[in-house]
């Protein structure tokens, strides 16, 4: 952005283009964010239906949500899935990314591609396949089944984020530590891990959010007894909708927002060292 920006030849046209672009950006920004804000506001509505703007404010829909054992159970189920999923995905993903970065395997690119495949293959295909497979081995409608399926879907994000961070870590630091007698494990824990920690945390957060928000695979393999909150929401959306759905949507939105902020903080703290 230095110098020569306003070339007088371009004159008025440039100013107009500038304004038009600003207007477009504001509109697109609204388009992206306004729907979420509107749902957030409606969740505090005092009206028994989804009207906007709400005639008054109340917490009744949150009351309704936390007072209802079905919603509460589904929320707990979601958390029971997302905690082991995100830990497992982070462990497996970080190990794989580290292995890929340091091993010089001949097929590294192919393995990397394979590990990214669950993001590329349309989820509906993965969901249908896992559903059919789980039917045979009796994992449908079980917590371990949901955890395994969610881990499959979230590992690629960890591999990608941690892999990207590893590619900028100077391998000579590790070599130096190894030369000085550190075992591979100590070297990883004392040298590499601190350097890639923001990326690992970022991967963990994204795995948590992805698992919490996952619907399609869960839709296939969950049963009314083990039902995560998104599936519960899905089955209610298609019936008669009241602002309780807006309340649960706001909860999910809030969770994403928190994770995004945490991710931002993690990156920010590392920004000084990495760049």
């Amino acid at each position: 952005m230095t110098g020569g920006e306003e070339l007088s030849a371009a004159g008025r046209g440039a100013v107009w283009w500038h304004r038009l672009r600003a207007l477009i950006c504001v509109l697109v920004g609204l388009y992206l964010v306004a729907p979420l804000v509107i749902v957030l506001i409606i969740s505090f509505s005092s009206a028994p239906f989804l009207s906007f703007p709400p005639p008054g404010l109340s917490l009744q829909w949150y009351d309704n949500l936390f007072g209802n054992p079905v919603w509460l159970r589904s929320l707990i189920t979601s958390i029971e899935i997302l905690v082991p999923t995100s830990i497992l995905a982070t462990l497996l993903g970080t190990a794989a990314a580290y292995g890929l970065a340091r091993s010089r395997l001949p097929a590294a690119a192919a393995i990397q591609g394979f590990l990214m495949a669950p993001v590329v293959v349309p989820v509906i295909i993965t969901a249908a396949g896992i559903f059919g497979f789980f039917r045979h081995i009796g994992l449908n409608g079980t917590l371990p089944g949901l955890i395994l399926a969610h881990t499959v879907l979230t590992v690629p994000y960890v591999v990608a984020t941690v892999g990207a961070a590893l590619s900028v870590v100077d391998a000579r630091l590790e070599d130096a530590a190894r030369t000085l007698g550190a075992s591979p494990l100590v070297c990883f824990r004392r040298i590499t891990l601190p350097l890639i920690l923001p990326a690992v945390l970022s991967g963990l957060l994204f795995a948590m959010v992805t698992s919490f928000d996952e619907l399609i695979v869960s839709l296939f393999i969950s049963t009314p007894r083990v039902r995560p909150v998104t599936v519960q929401m899905w089955s209610n959306i298609r019936g008669d909708v009241d602002p309780t759905i807006a309340a649960i949507a706001t909860l999910l939105f809030g969770f994403s927002l928190l994770a995004l902020l945490a991710d931002h903080l993690a990156r920010r703290r590392s920004a000084g060292g990495a760049r």
Binding site: L32, V33, L36, V39, V209, F212, D213, L215, T230, M233, W234, I237, A249, L252, F253, S256, L257, A259, L260
Partner: peptide, 9 residues
């Protein structure tokens, strides 16, 4: 923000 928010929401 929308990128991190659930598609269902």
């Amino acid at each position: 923000v929308p990128f991190w928010t659930s598609i269902l929401v």
